Computed example of a mutant assay.
Amino acid sequence: MAVHLAPTIEPIGVIHSCFKEKFGIPRQPNLADKAPGMLKFFPEFARPEAVRGLEQFSHIWIIFVFHRAVKKDGKWSAMVRPPRLGGNKKVGVFASRSPFRPNPIGMSCVRLEDIEATAKGPVLHLTGVDLLDQTPVLDIKPYLPYSDRLDTARDGFAPAPDNKTCQVNFSSTAATQIREREKTIPNLLPIITQVLENDPRPAYSNAQFSSRKGDTGADGLDKERVYGIRLFDFDLKWQAAGNKIRVLCLDPASD
């Protein structure tokens, strides 16, 4: 017999992050541990007493909604293709962290850097986020190392990588642009590096590249394809081949 929940669940706030589109977001929290975000509460929940004592914790769990992970037909699939399996093998949706779920709810453990008191209520400053800008937040809870960390837990088909996937370098144009923008965006160089080191391309990209006969340079980069990721207020342009990524430039964000 189905159990129906009372319609009392509502977002308590929204995430403001550097990730303006789904492509490029780290697939797990803290893979880009410099990636910043803010949690701003909606007026009803923006009460200083509601976060009293939270400053004593270094990390928090964020329970959120995958608000952009809705299929056109509104249906969910029992089987999904995790990126860690190359995008070709299927596992059960409940054995994955896929955003396409019966209830599109996610959870991330992120670092709590600061709680800012503002005229509109407390604002939580975070790092290590893997959340799309404007993500609705359902709840937050403190991370407790003694119970939340389980050293004997098995990681199934998704073991921690031994090291970063890609080698990232920068054109002189990109390096100059980053130095200038770091005057207003702290840690921009490591943020970009961490996002790209984890290879945001679809899992089948390397196989596709190896079978192509397009124009490549001495560095092996595909000269025909330029990727773009919307970060902060700019479009990050880069090229890739195998495990090598070269950042070309930071273009003003287009509408």
Rank of each mutant, 00 (worst) to 15 (best):
P159M: 04
G156W: 14
A240D: 07
F209I: 06
A207C: 03
L150Q: 14
G220S: 10
P161L: 00
K120H: 15
R230N: 07
S210V: 01
E197K: 00
L188W: 04
P186M: 08
E182Q: 13
I140M: 09
A119C: 01
G214E: 11
T135R: 10
A174N: 02
P159R: 08
L188Q: 04
D222F: 15
F209Q: 06
D199Q: 01
K237I: 11
A153S: 15
L188T: 03
A160G: 07
T152H: 09
P142V: 02
V137H: 11
I185Y: 08
G220E: 11
D155C: 11
R201H: 02
D199C: 00
A218Y: 12
I191E: 05
D148P: 02
E182N: 05
D219R: 14
R201E: 01
G156K: 12
P202K: 11
G228S: 14
I178L: 05
V123A: 12
K120D: 13
A160Q: 11
E197M: 02
D139L: 06
P202Q: 14
F209R: 06
Y146K: 12
Q167C: 00
V123C: 14
K141I: 07
A158Y: 00
D151N: 13
P122D: 06
L188Y: 04
S172V: 00
D114R: 15
L188I: 04
D130W: 03
A240L: 08
P145G: 03
G128Q: 01
L132D: 08
Q194Y: 08
D215E: 15
L231V: 04
V123N: 08
Q177P: 00
I191C: 09
N169W: 11
Y146M: 13
P159Y: 04
A175E: 01
L138K: 07
I229T: 05
P200N: 08
R149N: 15
A207Y: 09
P186E: 08
G156I: 11
R149T: 13
K213F: 10
